[in-house]
Simulated scan of single mutants.
Amino acid sequence: MKDEQRTISGQTKAILAEAKLGLKKSLGQNFLTDRHIIERIVSAIPLTEQSGVIEIGPGIGALTERLVKQAGSVVGIELDRRLLPVLHQLFATNENISFIHGDALKVDYHQLIHDYLSECKDVHVIANLPYYITSPLIIHLLEGGYPFQNIVIMIQKEVAERLMAQPHTKAYGSLTLFAQYYATVERVTHVSRNVFVPRPQVDSMVVKLTLRNVPPVQTSDQTLLFQIIRAAFQQRRKTLQNALHAQFQSQATKDQLHSWLQTSGIDGKRRGETLTLAEFAHIAKVFAEELREN
């Protein structure tokens, strides 16, 4: 118990009180206080002295405290400018940590890696994401072409279930397929709402995304693939043919779309939630060929 009290996670309330900091609901601030969960997050990646870590939203440094002991270099991106003096004070003696003020959705990660982590053999992202930016940030990190090996994130349990979902389930959707196109997704641990200050209204989950060197499906038009996927899930109860007609009605007639789906071997009466990523990729291949000819 004494060891836990000496950690930042064990002193969260005291540190906030001493710094006279009130938490901002607009930033979705919930600080993790459970050192066992922190250990699970850090151990999800085989970090070494040659590893670089980008931590998004360090808060007051509960997770950072473990990362600086495990990784060669750590960069914390903090949106709340009020927390930076606290972080600089808490980590004044650590030479392998840098903190920058910034919005994780707007940061140039290529430049950040060049400036802070250029000598690292491998680079990873670890984050406790505010719920309101979860999906946009996941998309940004995955599609940006950044040289990340892994992204370990603590997110709302419902969103985590969407990332890991299988076809024929309610959670399965466009975010599922987007994540699975760029990465393999695995559960790390469940996180109770009771281990945060302040306590959020829902439980969280830590998931690990290991970025793929090559997508699991081939496509000549990635933009078209995701356009088809988004259309299929925009109104989940629509059949695939009707959903795609709503999206492509300016480019093809309903009869043409029906013919294209037949060529792809996919029944247009199916719904998007029943299709695998490979089946969507096959539809995109046929549509790309037909649209070029029209």
Rank of each mutant, 00 (worst) to 15 (best):
I228H: 02
E49C: 12
R199S: 13
R82P: 01
I37H: 04
P136S: 01
R187G: 11
P216M: 08
H190W: 11
L90P: 10
L224Q: 06
A127I: 00
Q5R: 15
D108E: 06
I138K: 01
E4V: 14
L142P: 01
I60N: 07
F287R: 11
Q50Y: 10
D221I: 00
P167G: 11
K285R: 15
R81L: 06
I100M: 04
E55V: 05
R40L: 12
S135W: 07
E161K: 11
F31M: 02
A44N: 09
K69I: 02
G72H: 02
V86L: 03
R40M: 05
R199V: 14
Q5K: 14
D108L: 03
A92L: 11
G59E: 04
L47I: 09
K208P: 10
H245L: 10
A246Q: 14
L261M: 06
I113N: 04
I266W: 11
E65Y: 04
G268Q: 03
T12W: 01
N150S: 09
D3Q: 12
Y182I: 10
P198N: 08
A252G: 07
E158G: 06
S118Q: 05
L163T: 08
V123G: 01
Q227F: 03
V214N: 14
I138T: 00
N128L: 01
L277P: 13
E95N: 15
F91P: 02
K13W: 03
T12C: 11
F196S: 00
Y131Q: 00
L177M: 14
T223P: 07
Q156Y: 02
L84M: 07
A171Q: 15
G22K: 15
L90M: 09
S118G: 01
G102S: 00
V191F: 08
Q222Y: 02
I283M: 14
L257D: 01
M154N: 05
Q251C: 12
L112F: 01
Q241N: 10
R35S: 13
T239S: 10
Q235N: 12
T184F: 10
K157P: 04
V207R: 04
R212G: 08
R81Y: 02
V207E: 06
H282N: 15
I133M: 00
K24H: 01
S259Y: 00
D108T: 04
F196A: 00
D221R: 09
Q251E: 12
L261A: 05
S9L: 06
R199D: 11
E18C: 06
F148Y: 04
S220L: 13
T184C: 10
V188H: 02
E161C: 12
H114V: 08
P46Y: 10
I37F: 08
G268N: 09
K121Q: 13
E161V: 03
K25S: 10
S174E: 11
R187Y: 12
D221L: 09
N242Y: 05
A19C: 12
T189E: 06
E18Y: 05
K254N: 08
T219V: 13
F91V: 07
A127V: 02
F280E: 11
I60W: 02
F287M: 15
I45E: 07
Q222M: 14
T176Y: 13
S259A: 09
R212F: 14
I41V: 15
F226Y: 01
K24A: 04
E290W: 06
E279G: 10
S192K: 11
F196I: 07
Q241Y: 00
K25Y: 03
A243E: 07
S250H: 09
R81P: 03
A246E: 13
V159S: 06
A252C: 04
I77Q: 02
C120D: 07
